[in-house]
C-alpha cells in the first residue's frame, strides 16, 4: 500500500454509554493498517465516527456502528479514501 500524501483524519467516538462491542478495536485496526495517516481526536480532513451501537450518536464521513471484522473495517475505510482522497 503506497500513497504520495499524508492525511490527517479525525476519529470521533460516541459517548460509549452502552457499546454492543469493543469500539477501540476499530481505532486499533485503522491505526495499525494505515501508518501513513495521522489519526487525531482533534482535527482532520474528514471524520471517522465510531459508535458503540446502531443509534449512531456521532456522525462522520465514515461511520462505524457495529462489530466488524478487520477486513470489513479496512474495506469500508478504503472505499471512502479511494473515492475522495487517494489511490491505494
Amino acid at each position: 500500500m503506497t500513497t504520495t500524501e499524508k492525511l490527517e483524519v479525525r476519529i470521533k467516538y460516541c459517548g460509549g454509554c452502552n457499546p454492543y462491542f469493543k469500539r477501540e478495536n476499530i481505532e486499533e485496526t485503522l491505526r495499525a493498517s494505515y501508518k501513513f495517516i495521522n489519526f487525531s481526536f482533534e482535527d482532520g480532513v474528514f471524520t471517522v465516527a465510531i459508535n458503540g451501537c446502531t443509534t449512531s450518536c456521532v456522525s462522520g464521513e465514515v461511520v462505524f456502528n457495529s462489530m466488524e471484522s478487520e477486513e470489513r473495517i479496512r474495506k469500508k475505510f478504503e472505499s471512502f479514501l479511494e473515492k475522495h482522497f487517494i489511490k491505494i
Binding site: 454492543y20 451501537c53 446502531t54 443509534t55 449512531s56 456502528n65
Partner: peptide, 16 residues
C-alpha cells in the same frame, strides 16, 4: 428514539 437508518433509507428501532 434509539432507532437508526438502514441502508434502504428506512428507519428501524433499536433491536435490543
Amino acid at each position: 428514539y434509539e432507532g437508526f437508518k438502514t441502508p434502504s433509507g428506512a428507519y428501524m428501532p433499536n433491536q435490543l
